[in-house]
Nucleic acid binder design. Structure first.
Lengths: 162, 162
DNA sequence: CCGTCATCGTTGCAGGTGCAAAGGGTCGCC
DNA sequence: GGCGACCCTTTGCACCTGCAACGATGACGG
């Protein structure tokens, strides 16, 4: 039956392989030159855009688990790229912000990273880019639907009454 | 300058987030039900298609590091889904093949996995699928070109002499 | 004011991963 | 036949990750 299954045309496989390769290519820019991991890089970028934020903010905005964020921030702090303070209003929150050093590092890294992205995209037509982007969004929608089927308990009730 | 950088529209980020989500969704099928990791799943699938192969074969065909393959095979062996033997012609090679149990497990898993993929793709038009696939290939080509620049060793020598 | 519960962040733990070095085997060449 | 270069696979190590449990803090109700 499924004798003909081909991994090389299997969507999750293709996505995983491509994503890994791209990440690896990218890590040359922010990893090799500044010793940053993916998590650390994402945190830095988000800090630049958001100013002063909590771990929870980062978690939701850059798709990283809170423990991952926590450890990334700790490493960045000991590298001097980030500083932490207790939140003023709420003592549970941690106010994380970029240091000047962190900003400088980003200034270093961003052009390189954007250059790599541009090279990757350079052979694509405008239509290809647009469709590619749309498909990614559609896949997220599909994942939302499938995943969120769990919470919904009984689909029966809509037939029972008005 | 780069104040306007948006992680959410950054290609490597989008790919990574999507790929992670899809993998996670998929692991429900082969992970939760059979206790398989991604590496193990890929090895099984390749074995079904290729029959009897070596670690090196798997490594190149399913994009896994050799150490990852080695450990995946070890786990699969102790789970009884795979068997190992020394290669006949070459004593260095390991002849890895599916056991009957392994084949049965795949028979279980494959329909589920294909169903998930089908759901993901179900909202895409034929054109979207085709473009998406083409873009993935183009990105690989771009990575090949960029990556192979590496071998160039010393940027210093071109200034020093002829 | 105090008890209970939710929220935030950190940490312990078990496992997975990449890299590099170590086994073990093969082949060609002297 | 023996030696050294090479190849295939495993393993040691350091690191990263997810999950779950934990301590700390705030919010709410009695």
């Amino acid at each position: 039956m499924s004798q003909s299954f081909r991994l090389s045309s299997f969507l999750p496989y293709r996505l995983s392989v491509l994503s890994d390769r791209v990440s690896r290519r990218l890590s040359v820019a922010y990893g090799r030159s500044h010793g940053l991991s993916v998590a650390e890089w994402r945190v830095l970028v988000h800090l630049r855009a958001a100013g002063q934020v909590s771990v929870r903010d980062i978690e939701t905005c850059v798709n990283l688990e809170k423990s991952r964020v926590s450890r990334a921030v700790a490493r960045l702090q000991s590298a001097g790229l980030v500083k932490k303070a207790v939140g003023q209003g709420d003592g549970r929150l941690v106010a994380i912000s970029l240091t000047q050093e962190g900003g400088t590092a980003l200034d270093d890294i961003l052009p390189v990273v954007l250059g790599i992205e541009a090279e990757l995209l350079s052979d694509l037509t405008a239509q290809e880019r647009e469709v590619f982007s749309r498909v990614i969004e559609k896949l997220h929608v599909a994942l939302d639907q499938e995943g969120d089927v769990k919470p919904v308990p009984t689909p029966a009730q809509d037939t029972t009454d008005a």
